[in-house]
């Protein structure tokens, strides 16, 4: 009986074997071999020069995750408290952008953020850029006056008047792209935890003397931790490994791990051995991060699985 039923799992097992297990084994194999084919650890030794890419990737992914959490939690909480009709509409609105191709959405942001893009043209039209130049000019003359009076050497970053705000090809644009694309993955798990929360628990907290702030702090928030944890995972992992967002919105100045790995496989610096090693290290770091986080929230998670 049991054996027969386990046959149903076969397609998935085969799928996993071919498209997950074997690729990982290949990555492992490549990471520890050289172009010549022998065993080597050189790939890992050579990685040192890319440390800055590692730190920058993790830095941006952490910022994007935090921003998603800060925006996503209140939205989830608010949605869960509203009526079912509102919840359905809100859900559609949140999912709506996902119906469009990921690259298309990111290209759209490109044309919004470009130096001659939608936003800059808007800023120019309403005079914000002129205002910026005015303030900057004022600051410059203030610096000059102070320098003259006290013998200081203050200066502002900008000496010449600007014609646009630099938005594209900055870290900020990359973070924006990550937040925009992955925010739904933060909202959905948190929302589903909060909406399923037993209402009588909240009444019990109120009954025991907790005002709404205390109820949130001591009951709702701790009980929504499992949702936060899975939201954080679902935003952090794709953010740290993205290469499309950073290439489109970050340009050449924003080199992230994803771009670095991509380069080793498709770029002029063809080196799949190094690329595999970097992928492996990134995977290990991500797994360790997730493990630590889940240990941190383990107590709550178990409790909610009641």
């Amino acid at each position: 009986m049991k054996n027969k039923r386990s046959l149903f799992a076969l397609p998935y097992v085969v799928w996993m074997a071919f498209f997950v297990v074997i690729p990982i084994l290949l990555v492992l194999f490549y990471a520890f071999t050289s172009a010549a084919g022998g065993f080597t650890l050189d790939n890992f030794r050579n990685m040192g020069s890319y440390l800055v890419v590692f730190t920058h990737s993790f830095e941006l992914a952490i910022i994007a995750t935090l921003v998603c959490l800060i925006i996503g939690y209140p939205i989830s909480y608010w949605m869960a408290k509203e009526g079912p009709r509102f919840q359905r509409i809100a859900m559609v609105l949140i999912m709506l952008p996902m119906w469009m191709n990921f690259l298309l959405r990111t290209y759209a942001w490109m044309s919004i953020l470009e130096n001659t893009g939608l936003l800059n043209r808007l800023f120019a039209a309403v005079g914000i850029i002129d205002l910026g130049n005015l303030i900057n000019g004022g600051l410059n003359s203030l610096c000059a006056a102070l320098n003259g009076a006290f013998g200081l050497s203050l200066n502002t970053a900008r000496d010449t008047a600007m014609t646009y705000f630099q938005m594209i090809n900055t870290s900020g644009a990359v973070v924006l792209g990550m937040v925009y694309n992955y925010l739904p993955f933060m909202i959905l798990p948190i929302y589903s935890v909060i909406v399923k929360m037993d209402h009588s628990l909240l009444e019990a907290a109120r009954d025991l003397g907790a005002d709404s702030v205390t109820t949130f702090r001591r009951v709702i928030f701790p009980l929504s931790l499992p949702g936060i944890l899975s939201g954080v995972t679902m935003v952090f992992v794709p953010s740290v490994s993205t290469f499309a967002i950073s290439r489109l919105l970050g340009g050449s100045s924003e080199m992230l791990l994803g771009n670095l790995i991509e380069m080793q496989f498709t770029g002029t610096t063809y080196d799949p051995w190094l690329g595999s090693a970097i992928s492996l290290v990134m995977m290990v770091i991500v797994v360790v991060c997730m493990y630590v986080m889940n240990r941190f929230g383990e107590g709550e998670e178990q409790a909610v699985m009641l």
């Binding site: 009588s200 109120r206 009954d207 005002d211 107590g299």
Partner: peptide
Amino acid sequence: PHLRQVNTVFQRYALFPHLNVFENVAF
């Protein structure tokens, strides 16, 4: 409710699953 001097025992208990027995009572 939180300003009333009455307390309730709920039908399905409504105990806080993330707290142990002591912390539930101490809430």
